[in-house]
Design a protein around this nucleic acid. Structure first.
Length: 501
RNA sequence: CGCGGGGUGGACCAAUGGUUAGGUCGGAAGCCUCAUAAGCUUUAGAAGCGGGUUCAAUUCCCGCCCCCGCAACCA
């Protein structure tokens, strides 16, 4: 089987896309490109999660109809594709009645047919922010206003510090409790992989306590902006709706035979990439849905962390926010990709700061890769290479070692470390130039070896920095079987002084 | 006693019950001049506090102090 089906989570459209989701897309893009490079038939899916009360309220606030509002945000998300040179093959929107709704409803029907769905009356305090019920015990009190001693508001959601709404309704419930133990053993046996290990442990300890049944629908009167469940007064709860995108997008629920074949070919997904906040939905609820529907489970869940900005949480109110579009405009695509992939550990939280960005840019990109490419190309420019040049064994071995390390790091979802090992090869190249002094000797063998290193660097960085890789490739030309080196502009002009200090 | 993560050179991070605790950035000195004032080499500089286990603790255990996350707006 040579296919490789990889997804991001689908981003919630209550606000324009930000740097965090951009990170997820870029990480996924690296894995997609890497697997294409390895000759696999890659299908890279992303999309938008467009239903729910929060979206409806955000639309009202913006003075737009929900449909118009979500389309506007979805377009912004789609714009990330060319700005960050992303290579997704498909984009699914959960408001898409043709592509998504049939699949989501089919999943619901199958779960119901398998007797895993039942009706239950439920009353309780519902927090719109969390989109879930919270218990009285969870409620907290918080002082309000500047004089914290005076006014105290009680009965607040501990997360959003807002008063939850009292809701009494009858909803459809899914028998998650039936599947907890099975999922636990699948994760334990590593048939279902969760990376990194710390996240795997987190889920295992959660499952140990036992998973409870979950509500999977809402009253239409409370949540009109959702997929209506036929013959009922309910709409699908956001998670059954959202999670089913991974199958609906590849043809599940569609009747045309080409869609059926597509689903047969692509499902199960090889990798889902998600943020740490939605790990439970993906590591517990989603496998349970799939088991109930007797569909094969996805193979791997990669969990990334969050980005802080100058050490602080992303925060619109105190200006801790980075607009991915502005960032790309100021620094270009590949430098931003590089920073996010190198400075933020793929499987952990990381920090963004302009100072660190410019440091990384100058040392790694301008002085590192850019300068190595410049000196190599300058040495080789207009040189006539004989046909019988061979690569030095030592260099071949060194390149092979890098390649193996990169494979290993990517496989364990440590993209930052993969990049670090590529940069060690650059350092090796610099040392080799200094030691062999080709500007003095004009030795063609030495210079050819340098070109080989540069050529391999270009291939190694392709998943990470596709545009830069292409630029280097263009400098190394084979014309009628002869190697010709063409001068190129500096890959990364140095940033001289920062406007952010 | 909510749960969890963490305190290692100036900054960020790594490994480790046992000679000189490793890397990157930054600092200093030297080399080189092909290259984007880039590159290479060398070098200075570090375990939060207190106790315990041990022949030996940065590592294991206990206590304390401090920071952060779970936990506004969010992935």
């Amino acid at each position: 089987m040579n296919k490789f089906y990889i997804t991001t989570s689908i981003v919630y459209v209550n606000a324009p896309p930000h740097i965090g989701f951009t990170l997820e897309l870029i990480q996924t893009d690296v894995l997609a490109r890497y697997n294409r490079q390895k000759g696999r038939e890659v299908w890279f899916l992303t999309g938008t999660d467009e239903h729910g009360i929060k979206v409806l309220r955000a639309a009202q606030k913006a003075g737009l109809k929900p449909g118009a509002f979500v389309s506007k945000i979805a377009t912004q998300v789609k714009n990330l594709k060319k700005v960050f040179n992303l290579s997704w093959n498909d984009f699914i929107r959960t408001s898409d009645k043709k592509r998504h709704w049939p699949g989501a409803l089919k999943l619901f029907k199958i779960l119901a047919a398998n007797k895993d769905i039942y009706l239950k009356k439920y009353s309780g305090l519902y927090c719109v922010g969390c989109e879930k019920f919270i218990t009285e015990k969870e409620l907290v009190s918080r002082p309000v206003g500047r004089d914290s001693s005076s006014i105290v508001t009680a009965g607040l959601c501990p997360i959003h510090l807002k008063k939850p709404e009292f809701i009494e309704e009858e909803n459809f419930f899914f028998k998650l409790s039936k599947y907890g133990k099975k999922i636990e053993s699948l994760i334990k046996s590593r048939k279902l992989e969760i990376i990194p290990e710390s996240r795997r442990n987190e889920i295992l300890s959660f499952l140990k306590k036992g998973a409870e049944d979950i509500s999977i629908s809402r009253l239409k009167s409370n949540n009109s902006w959702g997929i209506p469940i036929p013959n009922s007064n309910q709409t699908l709860y956001v998670w059954l709706d959202a999670l089913s995108n991974y199958i609906s997008a590849v043809g599940f629920g569609c009747l045309a035979s080409k869609d059926k074949n597509k689903f047969k070919k692509l499902w199960p997904a090889d990798v889902h990439i998600v943020g740490k906040d939605i790990i439970r939905f993906h590591a517990v609820i989603w496998p349970a849905f799939l088991m109930s529907a007797k569909l094969p489970l996805f193979k791997k869940l990669l969990v990334h962390g969050f980005i802080t900005i100058e050490g602080k949480k992303i925060s619109k109110s105190i200006g801790k926010v980075i607009d991915p579009f502005e960032l790309a405009k100021k620094y270009n695509t590949d430098p931003v990709r590089y920073y996010l992939l190198r400075e933020i550990p793929s499987d952990n939280d990381g920090d963004f700061s302009y100072q660190k960005f410019e440091e990384r840019y100058n040392t790694d990109l301008a002085n590192g890769l850019g300068n190595f490419a410049s000196r190599t190309i300058a040495l080789a420019n207009n040189m006539d290479f004989p046909d019988d040049l061979k690569v030095l064994k030592e260099i071949e071995v060194r390149i092979e070692k890098t390649r193996k390390t990169v494979d290993f790091r990517i496989n364990e979802f440590k993209l930052h470390e993969a990049l670090a090992s590529i940069w060690e090869l650059i350092k090796f190249g610099d040392r080799y130039v200094n030691a062999s002094r080709p500007w003095e000797t004009k030795d063609k063998k030495t210079i050819f070896n340098l070109i080989v290193i540069l050529d391999n660097l270009s291939a190694l960085i392709e998943p990470f920095l596709p545009e830069t890789s292409l630029k280097i490739k263009k400098a190394i030309k084979w014309e009628k079987g002869k190697l010709k080196i063409k001068k190129i502009k500096p890959l990364f002009p140095k940033i001289e002084s920062s406007s952010f200090n």
